[in-house]
Simulated assay, not measured.
Amino acid sequence: MEIIQFFKDLEPVVEQVFNFLESRLGRLILSIGILMLATTINRLMHWRLLRDTGSKLPQTGNVRATWVRRKNIVWVSALLLILALWSGQITGFLISLAAIGGALLIVSKEFILCLWGALIISLNKSLKIGSTIEVGEFTGQLVNMGFVTFELAEIGPSKKQTGRLLSLPNSLVFTQAMKNLSVYGSYGIHLIDFNFDKSVKIQAAESLALRLADEAGKHWIEEAERHFSAVERDNFVDLPKARPEVFWASVDEKCLRMTLRFACPLNKRGQLEKSIVKRFWVEYSEQGQPLEEITEEPNQQGKASTMS
């Protein structure tokens, strides 16, 4: 009976609390409390991930992906709770803005595109934290995804990270082609272009390029072949061969282009390209082909691209 009487006495206090929370000041306090709670939860999750990884710093792999996913879930939940608290006022506000909705849509076009871009990036299963992607003229490793922007650890022309962090708007997915260079895992197909005069010794150049690529890939070529076979089986796609191949094309009446294609780990592209290009020109010139006969165009020598 005392417990029942206690709850009866407590009922007016509870009603006053709820009445206060239904007021604007109460909802404002609750909103601030939700934001503080979300911040605290994110900090606790970050601390726990650091503790779980021990002495190792979080990498742009599973740990980083887990952190970004959990952080986004917490903030989305907090945003939905705040919207629910202010739903009445928001509804009235939206109705009052109906007359100027067209103008607001034009002004906020970029913001809306960013939100849609964030949704598209999140739903793209092949695009995840740690993926190496190319957007327009920018290339880098995806390290963060937000509602308005995504961040890339920039990779320069040398295929090495520059130490700079690029923050790009999500709306770029509608205006620029987004290439996922690591969609098939840690191995990819790398291309190196060599330009020659028409008098080039085709067989000698081709044999030398294949030999250098074989020597460079002898430690991982078998593993890359098994990896590509597994990807083909699991994704129902046909991938290029992992072993080195050479293709020839005519650039103009004076120039031939030889393209060397081979499989390699994505994180070794720059190092391998530098080594192969340097050794190729040194050994090719030693075979009796004068360097003066080799046509070199600016930014064409050793030009490379990657397909994964």
Rank of each mutant, 00 (worst) to 15 (best):
I100V: 15
L115H: 01
F262R: 12
L165A: 04
C114W: 01
S122G: 02
L25A: 10
L81P: 06
A230W: 04
L25S: 06
C264H: 02
C264G: 11
L266C: 05
W281V: 01
F7E: 06
L239Y: 07
T132H: 08
I155N: 02
A78C: 09
K198F: 10
E137P: 00
M1L: 10
S23M: 03
P298Q: 00
Y187A: 02
L113H: 03
A249R: 14
S126G: 12
S308V: 13
R51H: 14
L272C: 03
T149F: 06
M258C: 07
F280H: 02
F280E: 01
L127V: 10
A84L: 15
P240A: 10
A38H: 02
T139P: 00
D52M: 15
E206R: 12
V246E: 06
D238I: 13
Q289G: 00
I202G: 04
S285M: 05
I129R: 03
R51A: 15
A263T: 09
F20M: 05
I112W: 08
F6Y: 10
Q271G: 02
E253S: 14
L115M: 07
K198I: 14
V148T: 13
D193F: 07
K160Q: 14
L272H: 06
E215A: 11
G33Q: 02
G88R: 11
K201G: 01
N235Y: 14
V107G: 01
I221S: 07
E154G: 04
A263S: 15
L49V: 14
F196I: 05
I82A: 01
G54H: 14
F236E: 11
E215Q: 14
A204W: 03
L191R: 09
E206Y: 04
V63F: 15
S131K: 07
M145G: 03
I129A: 07
L113Y: 11
V282D: 11
V237C: 08
R243D: 12
R27K: 15
F194K: 01
L57W: 15
S87H: 11
L181I: 01
G130W: 05
V76H: 11
